[in-house]
Design a protein around this nucleic acid. Sequence first.
DNA 1: AAGGCGGTCAACCGCCTCGTC
DNA 2: GGACGAGGCGGTTGACCGCCT
Length: 260
Amino acid sequence: MGRPPCCDKVGIKKGPWTPEEDIILVTYIQEHGPGNWRSVPTNTGLLRCSKSCRLRWTNYLRPGIKRGNFTPHEEGMIVHLQALWGNKWAAIASYLPQRTDNDIKNYWNTHLKKKMKKLQAAFDSPTDHHSTTYPQSISKAPLSKSYENTHQNPNIYASSTQNISRLLEGWMISSASHKKQETNKDCINGVVESVDLELESVLAFDNVCSWDKILSGDCYPKDDERKLQKQESPTLTFFDRWLLDESASQLEGVIEQQVN
DNA sequence: AAGGCGGTCAACCGCCTCGTC
DNA sequence: GGACGAGGCGGTTGACCGCCT
């Protein structure tokens, strides 16, 4: 017999959250702040387990969450950090404070993993092995309609619950009397701003390595010498080199700063 | 028109870690 | 130091949606 699930009590509701449930949860957290999830179901009357409440809040209702429309910058960060740390989604999410670990994990599984597979397959093919121009099938392939809808038009991605989140953001900003929430907001926004600035300035990913550059095999615009080395030693793929160089020189700096 | 199929993502499950007693 | 509970985390599932035939 395995460990019994935490939420298999009779009367516990499962499945998608309704807007009414969202409002109840949001209202409660508005008054009491996030935390002490154990007491949330009993205090709100929600027929959900504490974990479900926490997950709903952290992954969906929490203010400051950016949904959909991953930028090339963010994609690059995810690929980069995933290659460095593996599937440590929470750690990766800490470098993308506006994204949840669940969102990043989903995006990796549905989009980036495939991209990387294609990338790897292209490099493994003998004809492309030493080529500096990256396979057009990846870089120039038209995006599917659904991908375009989801990732190029954020309005279409919007949902009713996102609206709740937006409303909450407004509440967070306008409410001067709720000190606890103000602290939360400041904390979230402070982290977002500081980490964003840090990543923008230190990694400058858009300038150094956008997806276009990655896929076109031209990720070293500032260093011709490394380009030459790259051509001379084909045992490392372009992407391996990118990871090694980038991680050694830049990410360590960021991590050190975070630690200090 | 409708059924099949694949992609996407919210939510659940269960293990792990950490704090408290 | 060990037991216990709460929260964190990563893997997985299943519902939903749009496209294709």
